[in-house]
């Protein structure tokens, strides 16, 4: 499995200084374009037949996938259970709003803390093994939370999901942030998406991030150098869990509802395919993948009852013909 990873050397390693300057400029331009599109989305989305809440959903799924991608794409940790931390974030937020407080920021904080600490707590159990084993353990741990949510009826509402809570407006002195408004909630989500991007971006530029990439490329060598691979995997797992939890918390606020499906391994699979579709060795891959996946799913489920087959076909075809994703595909063409 290592050979496959090293054959496709990281795109961020240019051959010489000239092309380095060029590729930096290209990357800045691309990022500027992405942010411009995101900031103006509520204005152009209706023109394309979309709606603002769909935009918010794309952002939430991108954020979760962005967190997962730190582990999956950059550290090489094959987590198939990230819905667990997403769902914990959602349930933490929902339960807080329903039973404890009407403050949206506090509820958000509670959700992030619950999901993030869940990942931090269960990280050490998973990072002792790698590869397929790692994947299986992360799935199984995720399913554990799923069954807790299904069976703990009195608290979580069981299979019907948690209802009876609602996001509330935020008051800044006299100013009110009206979160009930879809457009304002979109910008609220975008704000946290930007924070998530900033965290992942600065981690990737730090020595920590370079350690992550080194683990992906050659963990045996790192071990010989005396680096505690398990420890760094754990850190990657925890950071990505916190970001997934933030996404889950926002998702609960977006829908004013959470269900056990937000914890299910099927959703974990969705996050992984989002990373792969966009390009898991790229920073913006999760966003691109999320745009494709969420929009296609939304469209398919409105036109056919057999949408599951089509989604399944996307998985199969992406693996067979498009394993490095849309951005990975373009990146490699540009490099040639």
């Amino acid at each position: 499995m290592k050979s496959a990873a090293s054959r496709h050397v990281d795109a961020a390693k240019p051959a010489d200084a000239m092309s380095s300057q060029k590729s930096t400029r290209r990357r800045v331009a691309a990022s500027a374009l992405v942010w411009a599109l995101l900031l103006t989305a509520p204005y152009w989305l209706p023109l394309t037949g979309g709606y603002t809440d769909l935009g918010s959903r794309v952002l939430v799924f991108s954020l979760a996938a962005l967190g997962l991608n730190l582990l999956l794409g950059f550290t090489g940790g094959l987590s198939f259970g990230h819905a667990a931390y997403f769902g914990l974030g959602a349930y933490g937020t929902g339960l807080m709003l329903k039973f404890v407080t009407h403050s949206t920021p506090l509820a958000l904080l509670a959700g992030v803390a619950l999901g993030g600490l869940g990942a931090t707590l269960f990280g050490p159990v998973t990072v002792r093994r790698r590869g397929i084993y790692f994947a299986m353990i992360t799935i199984a741990i995720g399913q554990m939370f799923y069954f807790v949510a299904v069976r703990w009826n009195s608290l979580t509402g069981g299979e019907d999901g948690l209802t009876g809570f609602e996001r509330t407006n935020i008051h800044f002195g006299h100013a009110i942030l009206n979160l009930h408004n879809s457009t304002i909630f979109y910008y609220f989500t975008l704000f946290f998406f930007a924070i998530g991007c900033a965290v992942v971006w600065s981690v990737l530029r730090s020595p920590l991030g370079h350690t992550f990439v080194a683990i992906r490329e050659n963990q045996k060598r790192l071990r010989f150098l005396g680096v505690s691979v398990g420890f760094y995997l754990w850190i990657a797992f925890a950071i990505s869990g916190f970001i997934a939890a933030l996404a889950g918390a926002l998702y609960a606020l977006l829908n004013n509802f959470t269900s056990p499906e937000d914890l299910n391994w099927v959703l974990s699979g969705d996050f992984v395919i989002i990373c792969v579709l966009g390009g898991m060795r790229t920073f913006w891959g999760p966003l691109v993948g999320s745009v494709i996946y969420v929009v296609v799913q939304d469209y398919l489920s409105s036109i056919t009852v057999n949408w599951m087959s089509f989604i399944g076909a996307i998985f199969v075809l992406a693996v067979l013909f498009f394993p490095w994703g849309l951005l990975g595909f373009f990146q490699r063409r540009i490099q040639k």
Binding site: M1, L78, I132, V276, I311, F315
Partner: peptide, 16 residues
């Protein structure tokens, strides 16, 4: 190939 791909493919196959 990377085990990731077999996971994803059989996952999609299961849905189909």
């Amino acid at each position: 190939r990377d085990p990731l791909f077999s996971l994803l493919l059989t996952f999609g196959l299961a849905m189909i």
